[in-house]
Design a protein around this nucleic acid. Structure first.
Lengths: 203, 203
DNA sequence: GACCAGATATATCGAAACGATAGTGTAGCT
DNA sequence: AGCTACACTATCGTTTCGATATATCTGGTC
């Protein structure tokens, strides 16, 4: 599902301008789908050109006019089709885990700092979700509650995992020699080399 | 952390060709960092041009020659710097959760299908991680075990959350009218409109 | 022996998305 | 008077994605 479709989906609930959509991304979708202006504005322009949304300019005193986009029947149908055809992805991209993978090239202070700030980032996610859901009425849509709960559950599980397992990671102490990995590593590059499983190699 | 840096990190452990790196991404990093050929090959070329890696061609019978990249001292230093300066991200991008957010525009069969295949996808993640870790020696690096465990923990927590909360989602039945949301939605577009919190709006 | 799927290895190209930045006036606070 | 936050627009260069092309060897099946 691309950003265009997502914007269309949000517009299927309420008409909105680009700025409104950005705010939604940063409140409702913050923990599972990020989108910046550089994605949203072109997406809206494309949707308008394709006739999936209408654009209406609402002038304001001083400020740039709001360009309010509202979904058309064609757009609504298009979104329904997208909901029913796509097989949805669910992808994590984590520099944090990459760094943890390379923990033995970090010194210990740095490692502990990274772990602590990740835990605190998950705390921030939890706080954010609590913050937005607190204002919801009791009849708020099930989907919204489901995804909020999912975010909470993930943040909690991640925090717990880190706290329970951080002890297995030990960065080297700072006065130790840096820059050379302290594990064996073996030449991989013979012509016609064997399948990886039969070669001694750092996992 | 961009793909270049990540490739450099992998090359700090073993020299490798583009194809080798791709395999690593698809085994070790599969659950938290994806990268395709379209990212890896340009990254290697850039690294070589910047002098952070050396490239050595190893001819093979029939097949295209392996271009084996090995990290230079400069490259190693560069990677250490990257490890110590970046504040790492950890981002989820989930079309699945987007769709769940729009659950009330899905019919029930489709909704159940999506939930089931997501659960089974998490099962696949768990199986994949078990598969790669089973072959590891007992002295395998702590970082690798930490990130593998993290993936397992997340897959487990996600599965559990879905199973325990899927009942709150109810897609409409198939014979019901489609295409119109059944919740109120209010015009957002008055000039100089109020802050969102004071307007009735679908969350 | 014929045949096909899959592994090994390279690489490119257009489309999509990211991330940072710019501009401009209002409102409110100190 | 000056500062910061907010409301709204928008662009632009870089990075990344995803699909595809090419070519040969290997291993298994009918």
């Amino acid at each position: 599902m691309d950003i265009k479709t997502l914007c269309l989906g949000l517009l299927s609930l309420n008409e909105a301008c680009g700025y409104d959509l950005k705010k939604k991304f940063e409140s409702l979708f913050k923990h599972f789908f990020a989108a910046g202006y550089g994605s949203i504005y072109p997406a809206l322009a494309d949707l308008a050109e394709a006739g999936l949304v209408d654009c209406r300019e609402v002038p304001q005193n001083g400020r740039p006019a709001r360009k309010v986009y509202s979904i058309t029947e064609s757009g609504r149908k298009h979104f329904q089709d997208a909901l029913n055809s796509a097989n949805p992805t669910h992808k994590l991209r984590s520099d944090f885990l990459v760094m943890m993978y390379f923990a033995d090239q970090l010194d210990n202070d740095r490692l502990q700092l990274l772990l602590n700030s990740r835990v605190s980032a998950f705390g921030g996610v939890t706080a954010h979700i609590k913050n937005i859901t607190d204002s919801w009425p009791s009849d708020s849509p099930a989907g919204a509650r489901f995804v909020a709960g999912f975010g909470e559950a993930m943040a909690k599980a991640a925090t717990q995992y880190i706290e329970e397992n951080r002890h297995i990671l030990k960065g080297h102490s700072q006065d130790q020699a840096k820059g050379q990995p302290r594990i064996r590593h073996t030449d991989l590059s013979q012509a016609n080399h064997q399948p990886a499983a039969t070669i001694e190699e750092r996992v």
